[in-house]
Nucleic acid binder design. Sequence first.
RNA 1: CGGGGCGUAGCUUAGCCUGGUAGAGCGCCUGGUUUGGGACCAGGAGGUCGCAGGUUCGAAUCCUGCCGCCCCGACCA
Length: 587
Amino acid sequence: MKLWTQFFIPTLKESPADAEIASHKLLVRAGLVRKLGGGLYTYLPLGQRVMQKITRICREEMDRAGGIELWMPHVHPAELWEQGPRWAAAREIMFRADSAGDGKRAGKDPEFVLGPTHEEVITPLVKAEITSYRDLPKNFYQIATKFRNEIRPRYGLMRAREFVMMDAYSFDTNDDNAVKSYFAMKAAYESFFRRLGITAIAVEADTGVMGGSFSHEFMVPAEVGDDDIIYCEESGYAANREKATSALVPADLADAAPAGAIEEFATPGVVTIAALEAAPYAVPADRQFKTLVYVGDGKPFLVVLRGNDELEGQTGALSFTVVRPATAEEIEPVLGAKPGSLGAVRGTIRNPDALAGVFADHAIRLVGNGVTGANKDGFHLRNVNVTRDLAITRFGDFRRVRPGEPCPKSGRPLQSRRGIEVGHIFKLGTKYSDKYGAVYTDDQKQSHPMVMGCYGIGISRTLQAIIEQSHDADGIIWPWHAAPFQVLICVLDPQLPEAMELVTKLGHAAEQAGAEVLVDDRAERPGVKFKDADLIGLPLRLTIGGKGLKEGIVELKWRTEKEARKIPLAEAEALIAAEIKKAVSGQ
RNA sequence: CGGGGCGUAGCUUAGCCUGGUAGAGCGCCUGGUUUGGGACCAGGAGGUCGCAGGUUCGAAUCCUGCCGCCCCGACCA
């Protein structure tokens, strides 16, 4: 039992000016966190208790799924990352920890970095320590602070520079076993979120800079989420928009036959899809080939889309580490024209050998014969045929899927909604084990790279996602197992000895039944206490007041319910215990 | 890093355009009256007006630079 007056719960009547979304406001108003700087937060006692709840459940689920807990340093030698496969991409978000003292010894390159994640630490460890198939599989995890210099921290704990994450790394002898490890973790994640009392759905996701073969994100549906989820209720298909595909292009679509010889025509001043759609050219956007130039790891490449399609995010399907749009200065020497007149027609590209490839979205096959830039300023080509004329290295999914397009599984229209990414699992393959030489010897004395998976849960982000998903106009509504305390005893007259005696009695009964109890013993008016009770949102509230004592009752009220129940003092202990036991066991 | 907005007491803010004693509400302290959904009265403490320079007799207010924060975009758990 904890007395409010001997604890520290600084609640606020007004929302801080820098909080935009409900969960962020409530985090601060309910006294869970305070901001130190952009993306940096102190967890106040109440917030810290929730963190411990989430952490404990996470640990239990990881252990149950065969995870082995360890602890890795947060300060990493930069050299370790330099040897890894993604130094170039990762250093953008890594804090440097160069040297101590006045910084005069600091070099141009960091000596140390703060760990944003730990593949670069765990893989060399496993390489050194595990060499036999007899010691596999293994799945190591830790629950620890991560550091990422997010370009734009946002929404409180939602995207912070310093945050708490559970990160796990699995090592298997072969692909089949790695898939088993992957799905064991997926099940553990589902159990974790279910126990916390929030809805998190697994969606197919892009592997991004992490690399690897496939991946799922766990999304908490919320309007304020950073991600778009594309889903189909009928088939259960769900994917991050970056990864989503649709059945827009029928599997049996025949290649279009050429419509005639390519003709060049003058389009002075026309540098946009829209301008080409307008008179006098009148070429609909979906009859145009759009040619985009990007630079992947220093080498330019082309992406060809329909004129009315958009490139989706980065090009996770391609195996570049760092991708950025090409500048006009880079484009002209390679293609022969400025942006606006570009195309991928064979023979028109000035320096095709400079290109790392020409990647085309499947949907351009729907165009069949269309119009594209001539790689000659002020000119376009018509009757360009996909198969005959375009110099395509390979096809892929590069376009952004739009809601309403047919589901790849059911063919029904896809829907879209926003979500908060609270967890991510990747089947990595051998990207890191190859790089660091993490190999084992099998029973035939053969050496093989270990097949890895990696897994993350944003613990601190989950805290906020719970609030975002579970609150009302008055405050937070904690699910039982995430709550900092489960029971709040509101003593309206703490100066009455008989009131405090009853608090002790009921408090013990509640604790015996498995609840943690907070007692509001402040000398405040009832209104203040009730407002704060709703704000901090503990699941069960017991109200003890002078009036009730005279009547011989206490009040029991669930945060989720509107009305309080009056229960006779004689039955109070037993009834409270019964209610709590129900809640502990999951209603 | 591009675009937009904002920095005044612990919190929410007025004042800035049009330069002239820095104001309110909440919170805090003291006393009193109250006490079942953010009470009232009286008194009180608390402010380098983000920082630095400039213009001016005089700057929270005008100008310049810097810093910080928030929002939108590209990235992430």
